[in-house]
Design a protein around this nucleic acid. Structure first.
Lengths: 234, 234
DNA sequence: GAATTGTAGATTGTCGACAATTTACTTGAC
DNA sequence: GTCAAGTAAATTGTCGACAATCTACAATTC
Protein backbone atom coordinates (compact mmCIF):
# COMPACT_ATOMS: atom_id res chain seq x y z
CA UNK A 1 0.00 0.00 0.00
CA UNK A 2 1.41 3.32 -0.99
CA UNK A 3 -0.24 5.33 1.72
CA UNK A 4 1.21 8.78 2.10
CA UNK A 5 2.24 9.88 5.52
CA UNK A 6 -0.48 12.13 7.06
CA UNK A 7 0.65 15.53 5.83
CA UNK A 8 4.15 15.46 7.17
CA UNK A 9 4.84 18.29 4.78
CA UNK A 10 8.01 16.70 3.53
CA UNK A 11 8.83 16.59 -0.10
CA UNK A 12 10.00 13.39 -1.70
CA UNK A 13 13.75 13.72 -2.02
CA UNK A 14 15.50 12.86 -5.21
CA UNK A 15 14.37 9.27 -5.27
CA UNK A 16 15.25 8.76 -8.90
CA UNK A 17 18.40 7.10 -10.03
CA UNK A 18 21.46 8.82 -11.37
CA UNK A 19 20.74 7.29 -14.76
CA UNK A 20 17.41 9.08 -15.03
CA UNK A 21 18.92 12.40 -14.03
CA UNK A 22 21.71 12.07 -16.58
CA UNK A 23 19.17 11.14 -19.25
CA UNK A 24 17.06 14.19 -18.45
CA UNK A 25 20.07 16.49 -18.55
CA UNK A 26 21.25 15.04 -21.84
CA UNK A 27 17.86 15.28 -23.51
CA UNK A 28 17.52 18.88 -22.41
CA UNK A 29 20.92 19.66 -23.87
CA UNK A 30 19.91 18.08 -27.16
CA UNK A 31 16.52 19.68 -27.72
CA UNK A 32 17.84 23.06 -26.62
CA UNK A 33 20.47 22.79 -29.34
CA UNK A 34 23.46 22.78 -27.02
CA UNK A 35 24.56 19.54 -28.60
CA UNK A 36 24.71 19.91 -32.34
CA UNK A 37 22.68 17.40 -34.37
CA UNK A 38 24.78 14.57 -35.71
CA UNK A 39 27.52 15.27 -33.18
CA UNK A 40 29.20 12.36 -31.51
CA UNK A 41 28.58 12.38 -27.83
CA UNK A 42 31.63 11.12 -26.11
CA UNK A 43 31.02 9.06 -23.02
CA UNK A 44 34.14 10.24 -21.25
CA UNK A 45 33.48 13.92 -22.00
CA UNK A 46 29.88 13.75 -20.78
CA UNK A 47 30.96 11.76 -17.73
CA UNK A 48 33.67 14.25 -16.84
CA UNK A 49 31.33 17.18 -17.49
CA UNK A 50 28.68 15.83 -15.13
CA UNK A 51 31.13 14.51 -12.60
CA UNK A 52 30.01 10.90 -12.81
CA UNK A 53 31.46 7.69 -14.13
CA UNK A 54 30.87 6.42 -17.66
CA UNK A 55 28.54 3.56 -16.65
CA UNK A 56 25.48 5.72 -15.85
CA UNK A 57 26.15 7.81 -18.95
CA UNK A 58 26.08 4.71 -21.14
CA UNK A 59 22.82 3.52 -19.61
CA UNK A 60 21.27 6.95 -19.96
CA UNK A 61 22.33 7.06 -23.60
CA UNK A 62 20.70 3.71 -24.23
CA UNK A 63 17.54 5.06 -22.63
CA UNK A 64 17.60 8.03 -24.96
CA UNK A 65 18.25 5.72 -27.87
CA UNK A 66 14.90 4.03 -27.36
CA UNK A 67 13.23 7.43 -27.37
CA UNK A 68 14.92 8.16 -30.67
CA UNK A 69 16.94 11.15 -29.53
CA UNK A 70 20.30 9.51 -30.07
CA UNK A 71 21.44 6.64 -32.24
CA UNK A 72 24.19 4.15 -31.44
CA UNK A 73 26.70 2.47 -33.67
CA UNK A 74 28.53 -0.58 -32.32
CA UNK A 75 32.05 0.25 -31.24
CA UNK A 76 31.60 3.80 -32.41
CA UNK A 77 29.40 5.20 -29.71
CA UNK A 78 26.38 7.46 -29.56
CA UNK A 79 25.42 10.26 -31.90
CA UNK A 80 22.83 13.01 -31.58
CA UNK A 81 19.97 12.42 -33.98
CA UNK A 82 19.08 15.39 -36.07
CA UNK A 83 15.46 16.48 -36.21
CA UNK A 84 14.67 16.80 -39.87
CA UNK A 85 11.45 17.94 -41.49
CA UNK A 86 10.77 14.33 -42.39
CA UNK A 87 11.36 13.20 -38.81
CA UNK A 88 8.84 15.72 -37.54
CA UNK A 89 6.37 14.63 -40.19
CA UNK A 90 6.87 11.01 -39.17
CA UNK A 91 6.46 11.93 -35.52
CA UNK A 92 3.07 13.50 -36.18
CA UNK A 93 1.98 10.57 -38.29
CA UNK A 94 2.72 8.32 -35.34
CA UNK A 95 0.93 10.62 -32.92
CA UNK A 96 -2.05 10.70 -35.23
CA UNK A 97 -2.24 6.92 -35.27
CA UNK A 98 -1.84 6.61 -31.51
CA UNK A 99 -4.04 9.44 -30.32
CA UNK A 100 -6.83 8.51 -32.70
CA UNK A 101 -6.95 5.11 -31.04
CA UNK A 102 -6.69 6.79 -27.64
CA UNK A 103 -9.74 9.00 -28.05
CA UNK A 104 -11.73 6.05 -29.41
CA UNK A 105 -11.03 4.21 -26.18
CA UNK A 106 -11.56 7.34 -24.11
CA UNK A 107 -15.10 7.63 -25.38
CA UNK A 108 -15.73 4.06 -24.28
CA UNK A 109 -14.43 4.28 -20.74
CA UNK A 110 -15.30 7.89 -20.06
CA UNK A 111 -15.95 8.65 -16.42
CA UNK A 112 -16.09 11.53 -13.98
CA UNK A 113 -12.50 11.14 -12.90
CA UNK A 114 -11.17 11.47 -16.44
CA UNK A 115 -13.53 14.32 -17.22
CA UNK A 116 -12.39 16.12 -14.11
CA UNK A 117 -8.72 15.69 -14.94
CA UNK A 118 -9.00 16.79 -18.56
CA UNK A 119 -11.23 19.76 -17.76
CA UNK A 120 -8.82 20.89 -15.08
CA UNK A 121 -5.95 20.60 -17.53
CA UNK A 122 -7.69 22.80 -20.10
CA UNK A 123 -8.27 25.33 -17.34
CA UNK A 124 -4.60 25.06 -16.49
CA UNK A 125 -3.75 25.70 -20.13
CA UNK A 126 -5.73 28.91 -19.99
CA UNK A 127 -4.16 29.88 -16.70
CA UNK A 128 -0.56 29.52 -17.84
CA UNK A 129 -1.42 31.36 -21.06
CA UNK A 130 -2.61 34.44 -19.20
CA UNK A 131 -0.78 34.54 -15.89
CA UNK A 132 2.65 33.30 -16.77
CA UNK A 133 4.82 34.11 -19.70
CA UNK A 134 7.22 31.18 -19.37
CA UNK A 135 6.99 29.23 -22.61
CA UNK A 136 8.34 26.08 -21.04
CA UNK A 137 5.48 25.95 -18.54
CA UNK A 138 2.97 26.27 -21.36
CA UNK A 139 4.59 23.46 -23.32
CA UNK A 140 4.55 21.28 -20.24
CA UNK A 141 0.84 21.95 -19.75
CA UNK A 142 0.07 21.11 -23.38
CA UNK A 143 1.98 17.84 -23.13
CA UNK A 144 0.21 17.02 -19.90
CA UNK A 145 -3.20 17.21 -21.60
CA UNK A 146 -2.20 14.64 -24.17
CA UNK A 147 -0.51 12.55 -21.52
CA UNK A 148 -3.69 12.53 -19.47
CA UNK A 149 -5.64 11.34 -22.49
CA UNK A 150 -3.20 8.47 -22.96
CA UNK A 151 -3.41 7.60 -19.28
CA UNK A 152 -7.19 7.67 -19.42
CA UNK A 153 -7.24 5.30 -22.37
CA UNK A 154 -6.46 2.54 -19.87
CA UNK A 155 -3.92 1.06 -22.24
CA UNK A 156 -0.43 1.50 -20.77
CA UNK A 157 1.15 0.75 -24.13
CA UNK A 158 -0.31 3.90 -25.64
CA UNK A 159 1.16 5.94 -22.82
CA UNK A 160 4.46 4.14 -23.23
CA UNK A 161 4.70 5.07 -26.89
CA UNK A 162 3.66 8.62 -26.10
CA UNK A 163 6.37 8.97 -23.48
CA UNK A 164 8.89 7.68 -25.96
CA UNK A 165 8.18 10.40 -28.43
CA UNK A 166 7.56 12.87 -25.62
CA UNK A 167 10.83 14.72 -25.91
CA UNK A 168 10.49 15.30 -29.61
CA UNK A 169 6.87 16.23 -29.06
CA UNK A 170 7.88 18.75 -26.43
CA UNK A 171 10.39 20.19 -28.83
CA UNK A 172 7.75 20.54 -31.52
CA UNK A 173 5.21 22.15 -29.21
CA UNK A 174 7.88 24.68 -28.32
CA UNK A 175 7.96 25.59 -32.00
CA UNK A 176 4.20 25.98 -32.09
CA UNK A 177 4.21 28.14 -28.99
CA UNK A 178 6.64 30.50 -30.58
CA UNK A 179 4.37 30.90 -33.57
CA UNK A 180 1.13 31.89 -31.91
CA UNK A 181 1.04 35.53 -30.96
CA UNK A 182 -1.83 34.90 -28.62
CA UNK A 183 -0.89 32.17 -26.14
CA UNK A 184 -4.53 31.46 -25.30
CA UNK A 185 -4.86 30.08 -28.82
CA UNK A 186 -3.06 26.91 -27.71
CA UNK A 187 -5.58 26.39 -24.93
CA UNK A 188 -8.50 26.95 -27.27
CA UNK A 189 -7.39 24.33 -29.77
CA UNK A 190 -7.87 21.68 -27.10
CA UNK A 191 -11.46 22.56 -26.33
CA UNK A 192 -13.18 20.88 -29.29
CA UNK A 193 -11.55 17.59 -28.31
CA UNK A 194 -12.75 17.83 -24.74
CA UNK A 195 -16.24 18.80 -25.88
CA UNK A 196 -16.55 15.83 -28.23
CA UNK A 197 -15.32 13.52 -25.50
CA UNK A 198 -17.80 14.97 -23.03
CA UNK A 199 -20.58 14.26 -25.52
CA UNK A 200 -19.11 10.76 -25.88
CA UNK A 201 -19.30 11.20 -29.63
CA UNK A 202 -16.60 8.94 -31.08
CA UNK A 203 -16.84 10.24 -34.63
CA UNK A 204 -16.61 13.85 -33.54
CA UNK A 205 -13.81 13.13 -31.10
CA UNK A 206 -11.75 11.37 -33.74
CA UNK A 207 -12.12 14.17 -36.24
CA UNK A 208 -11.38 16.72 -33.52
CA UNK A 209 -8.10 15.06 -32.58
CA UNK A 210 -7.19 14.52 -36.22
CA UNK A 211 -7.76 18.19 -36.91
CA UNK A 212 -5.83 19.21 -33.81
CA UNK A 213 -2.80 17.10 -34.67
CA UNK A 214 -2.85 17.91 -38.37
CA UNK A 215 -2.92 21.62 -37.63
CA UNK A 216 -0.06 21.25 -35.19
CA UNK A 217 1.84 19.26 -37.78
CA UNK A 218 1.40 21.96 -40.38
CA UNK A 219 2.50 24.70 -38.02
CA UNK A 220 5.52 22.80 -36.75
CA UNK A 221 6.73 21.95 -40.25
CA UNK A 222 6.30 25.52 -41.45
CA UNK A 223 8.06 26.93 -38.41
CA UNK A 224 10.86 24.41 -38.63
CA UNK A 225 11.39 25.13 -42.31
CA UNK A 226 11.76 28.81 -41.51
CA UNK A 227 14.22 27.96 -38.75
CA UNK A 228 16.34 25.88 -41.11
CA UNK A 229 16.34 28.47 -43.86
CA UNK A 230 17.50 31.07 -41.40
CA UNK A 231 20.28 28.75 -40.32
CA UNK A 232 21.64 28.05 -43.80
CA UNK A 233 21.53 31.67 -44.92
CA UNK A 234 23.48 33.00 -41.95
CA UNK B 1 28.69 4.65 -50.74
CA UNK B 2 27.92 1.20 -49.44
CA UNK B 3 29.03 -0.69 -52.48
CA UNK B 4 29.31 -4.39 -51.86
CA UNK B 5 32.46 -6.14 -52.92
CA UNK B 6 31.90 -7.93 -56.27
CA UNK B 7 30.45 -11.23 -55.05
CA UNK B 8 33.26 -12.25 -52.75
CA UNK B 9 30.78 -14.72 -51.31
CA UNK B 10 31.50 -13.83 -47.73
CA UNK B 11 28.79 -13.56 -45.16
CA UNK B 12 28.60 -10.72 -42.70
CA UNK B 13 30.06 -11.95 -39.42
CA UNK B 14 28.38 -11.46 -36.08
CA UNK B 15 28.71 -7.72 -35.90
CA UNK B 16 26.30 -7.18 -33.00
CA UNK B 17 27.36 -6.26 -29.55
CA UNK B 18 27.29 -8.40 -26.46
CA UNK B 19 24.44 -6.31 -25.07
CA UNK B 20 22.19 -7.22 -27.97
CA UNK B 21 22.98 -10.90 -27.66
CA UNK B 22 22.29 -10.90 -23.94
CA UNK B 23 19.01 -9.07 -24.54
CA UNK B 24 17.97 -11.63 -27.13
CA UNK B 25 18.81 -14.51 -24.83
CA UNK B 26 16.97 -12.97 -21.93
CA UNK B 27 13.85 -12.21 -23.93
CA UNK B 28 13.80 -15.76 -25.25
CA UNK B 29 14.04 -17.08 -21.72
CA UNK B 30 11.14 -14.91 -20.64
CA UNK B 31 8.66 -15.63 -23.42
CA UNK B 32 9.46 -19.32 -23.32
CA UNK B 33 8.48 -19.31 -19.67
CA UNK B 34 11.88 -20.26 -18.32
CA UNK B 35 11.79 -17.17 -16.17
CA UNK B 36 8.60 -17.06 -14.17
CA UNK B 37 6.48 -13.91 -14.50
CA UNK B 38 7.03 -11.48 -11.68
CA UNK B 39 10.31 -13.10 -10.76
CA UNK B 40 13.21 -10.92 -9.86
CA UNK B 41 16.00 -11.28 -12.30
CA UNK B 42 19.24 -11.01 -10.45
CA UNK B 43 22.03 -9.31 -12.32
CA UNK B 44 24.77 -11.42 -10.79
CA UNK B 45 22.94 -14.68 -11.43
CA UNK B 46 22.27 -13.85 -15.08
CA UNK B 47 25.81 -12.59 -15.51
CA UNK B 48 27.30 -15.74 -14.03
CA UNK B 49 24.91 -17.94 -16.02
CA UNK B 50 25.93 -16.35 -19.31
CA UNK B 51 29.56 -16.00 -18.40
CA UNK B 52 29.68 -12.23 -18.75
CA UNK B 53 30.03 -9.29 -16.42
CA UNK B 54 27.08 -7.44 -14.89
CA UNK B 55 27.47 -4.29 -17.00
CA UNK B 56 26.18 -5.74 -20.28
CA UNK B 57 23.40 -7.50 -18.39
CA UNK B 58 22.24 -4.20 -16.90
CA UNK B 59 22.23 -2.50 -20.29
CA UNK B 60 20.38 -5.41 -21.87
CA UNK B 61 17.80 -5.28 -19.10
CA UNK B 62 17.27 -1.59 -19.70
CA UNK B 63 16.79 -2.37 -23.38
CA UNK B 64 14.15 -4.95 -22.49
CA UNK B 65 12.54 -2.49 -20.14
CA UNK B 66 11.74 -0.18 -23.01
CA UNK B 67 10.15 -3.05 -24.86
CA UNK B 68 8.00 -3.72 -21.82
CA UNK B 69 9.25 -7.19 -21.09
CA UNK B 70 10.78 -6.30 -17.76
CA UNK B 71 10.20 -3.52 -15.30
CA UNK B 72 12.75 -1.88 -13.05
CA UNK B 73 12.50 -0.53 -9.54
CA UNK B 74 15.23 1.81 -8.28
CA UNK B 75 17.65 0.05 -5.98
CA UNK B 76 15.60 -3.11 -6.25
CA UNK B 77 16.50 -4.32 -9.69
CA UNK B 78 14.66 -5.82 -12.62
CA UNK B 79 11.55 -8.00 -12.61
CA UNK B 80 10.02 -9.93 -15.46
CA UNK B 81 6.65 -8.57 -16.44
CA UNK B 82 3.82 -11.00 -16.57
CA UNK B 83 1.85 -11.28 -19.78
CA UNK B 84 -1.75 -10.96 -18.74
CA UNK B 85 -4.84 -11.22 -20.89
CA UNK B 86 -5.24 -7.48 -20.60
CA UNK B 87 -1.64 -6.90 -21.69
CA UNK B 88 -2.19 -9.02 -24.80
CA UNK B 89 -5.40 -7.14 -25.53
CA UNK B 90 -3.56 -3.85 -25.16
CA UNK B 91 -0.77 -5.09 -27.38
CA UNK B 92 -3.19 -5.86 -30.19
CA UNK B 93 -4.92 -2.55 -29.79
CA UNK B 94 -1.57 -0.85 -30.29
CA UNK B 95 -0.74 -3.03 -33.27
CA UNK B 96 -4.12 -2.23 -34.76
CA UNK B 97 -3.48 1.50 -34.47
CA UNK B 98 0.03 1.26 -35.89
CA UNK B 99 -0.51 -1.21 -38.69
CA UNK B 100 -3.65 0.54 -39.88
CA UNK B 101 -1.59 3.67 -40.38
CA UNK B 102 1.16 1.58 -41.97
CA UNK B 103 -1.02 0.08 -44.69
CA UNK B 104 -2.50 3.50 -45.42
CA UNK B 105 0.97 4.78 -46.15
CA UNK B 106 1.91 1.59 -47.97
CA UNK B 107 -0.84 2.15 -50.48
CA UNK B 108 0.55 5.61 -51.12
CA UNK B 109 4.16 4.73 -51.70
CA UNK B 110 3.64 1.30 -53.22
CA UNK B 111 6.38 0.26 -55.61
CA UNK B 112 7.85 -2.80 -57.25
CA UNK B 113 10.50 -3.25 -54.63
CA UNK B 114 7.96 -3.42 -51.79
CA UNK B 115 5.64 -5.63 -53.81
CA UNK B 116 8.50 -7.98 -54.53
CA UNK B 117 9.54 -8.17 -50.88
CA UNK B 118 6.05 -8.78 -49.51
CA UNK B 119 5.15 -11.31 -52.19
CA UNK B 120 8.34 -13.19 -51.51
CA UNK B 121 7.56 -13.20 -47.80
CA UNK B 122 4.11 -14.70 -48.35
CA UNK B 123 5.76 -17.36 -50.50
CA UNK B 124 8.22 -17.93 -47.68
CA UNK B 125 5.30 -18.29 -45.27
CA UNK B 126 3.88 -21.04 -47.45
CA UNK B 127 7.27 -22.69 -47.79
CA UNK B 128 7.98 -22.93 -44.06
CA UNK B 129 4.44 -24.17 -43.50
CA UNK B 130 4.88 -27.14 -45.79
CA UNK B 131 8.57 -27.99 -45.80
CA UNK B 132 9.61 -27.39 -42.25
CA UNK B 133 7.88 -28.28 -39.03
CA UNK B 134 9.83 -25.90 -36.76
CA UNK B 135 7.28 -23.60 -35.19
CA UNK B 136 9.89 -20.98 -34.39
CA UNK B 137 10.79 -20.56 -38.05
CA UNK B 138 7.14 -20.05 -38.93
CA UNK B 139 6.71 -17.40 -36.26
CA UNK B 140 9.80 -15.64 -37.49
CA UNK B 141 8.43 -15.61 -41.03
CA UNK B 142 5.09 -14.20 -39.87
CA UNK B 143 6.83 -11.43 -37.94
CA UNK B 144 8.99 -10.66 -40.93
CA UNK B 145 5.94 -9.99 -43.10
CA UNK B 146 4.66 -7.37 -40.67
CA UNK B 147 8.14 -5.98 -40.21
CA UNK B 148 8.49 -5.58 -43.98
CA UNK B 149 5.21 -3.67 -44.07
CA UNK B 150 6.48 -1.29 -41.39
CA UNK B 151 9.76 -0.85 -43.24
CA UNK B 152 7.92 -0.15 -46.47
CA UNK B 153 5.80 2.52 -44.82
CA UNK B 154 8.87 4.76 -45.00
CA UNK B 155 8.26 5.97 -41.46
CA UNK B 156 11.03 4.68 -39.20
CA UNK B 157 8.97 5.49 -36.12
CA UNK B 158 6.38 2.89 -37.03
CA UNK B 159 9.08 0.29 -37.37
CA UNK B 160 10.57 1.42 -34.09
CA UNK B 161 7.32 0.90 -32.22
CA UNK B 162 6.82 -2.44 -33.93
CA UNK B 163 10.26 -3.63 -32.89
CA UNK B 164 9.49 -2.57 -29.35
CA UNK B 165 6.48 -4.78 -29.11
CA UNK B 166 8.14 -7.39 -31.31
CA UNK B 167 8.98 -9.83 -28.56
CA UNK B 168 5.48 -9.89 -27.14
CA UNK B 169 4.15 -10.12 -30.68
CA UNK B 170 6.40 -13.09 -31.35
CA UNK B 171 5.15 -14.70 -28.20
CA UNK B 172 1.55 -14.20 -29.26
CA UNK B 173 2.12 -15.56 -32.77
CA UNK B 174 3.59 -18.63 -31.15
CA UNK B 175 0.24 -19.10 -29.42
CA UNK B 176 -1.61 -18.74 -32.71
CA UNK B 177 0.69 -21.21 -34.43
CA UNK B 178 -0.06 -23.81 -31.82
CA UNK B 179 -3.76 -23.42 -32.41
CA UNK B 180 -3.97 -23.94 -36.14
CA UNK B 181 -3.90 -27.60 -37.12
CA UNK B 182 -3.03 -26.68 -40.67
CA UNK B 183 0.09 -24.47 -40.69
CA UNK B 184 -0.69 -23.16 -44.18
CA UNK B 185 -3.62 -21.31 -42.62
CA UNK B 186 -1.21 -18.72 -41.21
CA UNK B 187 0.16 -18.04 -44.66
CA UNK B 188 -3.31 -17.74 -46.15
CA UNK B 189 -4.47 -15.12 -43.67
CA UNK B 190 -1.85 -12.75 -45.04
CA UNK B 191 -2.96 -12.99 -48.64
CA UNK B 192 -5.99 -10.67 -48.52
CA UNK B 193 -3.76 -7.89 -47.16
CA UNK B 194 -1.23 -8.31 -49.94
CA UNK B 195 -4.00 -8.43 -52.56
CA UNK B 196 -5.59 -5.21 -51.35
CA UNK B 197 -2.20 -3.52 -51.31
CA UNK B 198 -1.47 -4.74 -54.83
CA UNK B 199 -4.75 -3.20 -55.98
CA UNK B 200 -3.69 -0.04 -54.08
CA UNK B 201 -7.13 0.02 -52.51
CA UNK B 202 -6.73 1.86 -49.20
CA UNK B 203 -10.19 1.05 -47.85
CA UNK B 204 -9.85 -2.64 -48.62
CA UNK B 205 -6.32 -2.77 -47.26
CA UNK B 206 -7.34 -1.16 -43.97
CA UNK B 207 -10.24 -3.52 -43.45
CA UNK B 208 -8.04 -6.46 -44.41
CA UNK B 209 -5.42 -5.59 -41.81
CA UNK B 210 -8.06 -4.83 -39.22
CA UNK B 211 -9.64 -8.22 -39.83
CA UNK B 212 -6.26 -9.94 -39.75
CA UNK B 213 -5.25 -8.40 -36.45
CA UNK B 214 -8.64 -8.75 -34.81
CA UNK B 215 -8.76 -12.42 -35.68
CA UNK B 216 -5.27 -12.91 -34.33
CA UNK B 217 -6.29 -11.04 -31.18
CA UNK B 218 -9.29 -13.28 -30.65
CA UNK B 219 -7.26 -16.45 -31.15
CA UNK B 220 -4.43 -15.34 -28.90
CA UNK B 221 -6.72 -14.35 -26.08
CA UNK B 222 -8.66 -17.60 -26.29
CA UNK B 223 -5.51 -19.67 -26.41
CA UNK B 224 -3.92 -17.75 -23.57
CA UNK B 225 -7.01 -18.14 -21.41
CA UNK B 226 -6.88 -21.90 -21.92
CA UNK B 227 -3.20 -21.87 -21.02
CA UNK B 228 -3.86 -20.01 -17.80
CA UNK B 229 -6.75 -22.22 -16.76
CA UNK B 230 -4.58 -25.27 -17.31
CA UNK B 231 -1.93 -23.72 -15.11
CA UNK B 232 -4.18 -22.92 -12.17
CA UNK B 233 -5.93 -26.29 -12.18
CA UNK B 234 -2.71 -28.33 -12.11
C1' DG C 1 50.90 11.39 -56.96
C1' DA C 2 47.39 7.77 -55.66
C1' DA C 3 46.45 3.84 -53.21
C1' DT C 4 47.52 0.64 -49.75
C1' DT C 5 49.60 -0.75 -45.47
C1' DG C 6 51.27 0.13 -40.88
C1' DT C 7 51.16 2.51 -36.52
C1' DA C 8 49.92 5.65 -32.60
C1' DG C 9 46.25 7.88 -30.20
C1' DA C 10 41.67 8.01 -28.77
C1' DT C 11 37.20 5.85 -27.79
C1' DT C 12 34.17 2.25 -26.75
C1' DG C 13 33.38 -2.51 -24.58
C1' DT C 14 33.88 -5.24 -20.71
C1' DC C 15 35.30 -6.37 -16.30
C1' DG C 16 36.09 -6.91 -11.15
C1' DA C 17 35.82 -4.25 -6.85
C1' DC C 18 33.88 -1.26 -3.55
C1' DA C 19 29.98 1.81 -1.68
C1' DA C 20 25.03 2.39 -0.90
C1' DT C 21 20.77 0.36 -0.29
C1' DT C 22 17.53 -3.18 0.58
C1' DT C 23 16.01 -7.55 2.60
C1' DA C 24 15.65 -11.10 5.92
C1' DC C 25 16.54 -12.45 10.26
C1' DT C 26 17.42 -12.00 15.19
C1' DT C 27 16.95 -9.87 19.36
C1' DG C 28 14.61 -7.46 22.79
C1' DA C 29 10.77 -4.90 25.03
C1' DC C 30 5.99 -4.65 26.19
C1' DG D 1 2.52 -13.38 21.02
C1' DT D 2 3.26 -8.97 18.66
C1' DC D 3 5.68 -5.21 17.39
C1' DA D 4 9.86 -2.53 17.02
C1' DA D 5 14.62 -1.85 16.48
C1' DG D 6 19.00 -3.58 15.28
C1' DT D 7 22.09 -6.31 12.46
C1' DA D 8 24.14 -9.20 8.86
C1' DA D 9 23.79 -10.99 4.26
C1' DA D 10 22.63 -10.14 -0.31
C1' DT D 11 21.79 -7.07 -4.14
C1' DT D 12 22.05 -3.02 -6.79
C1' DG D 13 24.65 1.45 -7.93
C1' DT D 14 28.82 3.39 -9.19
C1' DC D 15 33.46 3.52 -10.18
C1' DG D 16 38.28 3.13 -12.17
C1' DA D 17 41.10 0.08 -15.06
C1' DC D 18 42.23 -2.79 -18.83
C1' DA D 19 41.16 -4.97 -23.45
C1' DA D 20 39.14 -4.52 -28.03
C1' DT D 21 38.12 -1.58 -31.63
C1' DC D 22 38.10 2.39 -34.44
C1' DT D 23 40.19 6.82 -36.48
C1' DA D 24 43.64 9.56 -38.34
C1' DC D 25 47.85 10.12 -40.05
C1' DA D 26 52.45 8.67 -41.53
C1' DA D 27 55.18 5.50 -44.29
C1' DT D 28 55.69 2.63 -48.23
C1' DT D 29 54.92 0.86 -52.71
C1' DC D 30 53.62 1.18 -57.46
Amino acid sequence: MTQTQPSSGFQQIDREGLVQRVAKLLSKAIVSGKLAPGARLSESVVARELGVSRAPVREAARLLESSGLVRSEPNRGFFVRQVSIKALNDLYELRLAIETAVVERLVQNWNDEIEEALSAQVAELHRVATEEADIFTQVEADMQFHRLMCTGSDNPKFLQVFEQVAIETEFSIMLIGQLYDDPTRIAETHEPILEALRARDATKAVSAIRYHISEAQRIVIDQFRLLEEGKTST
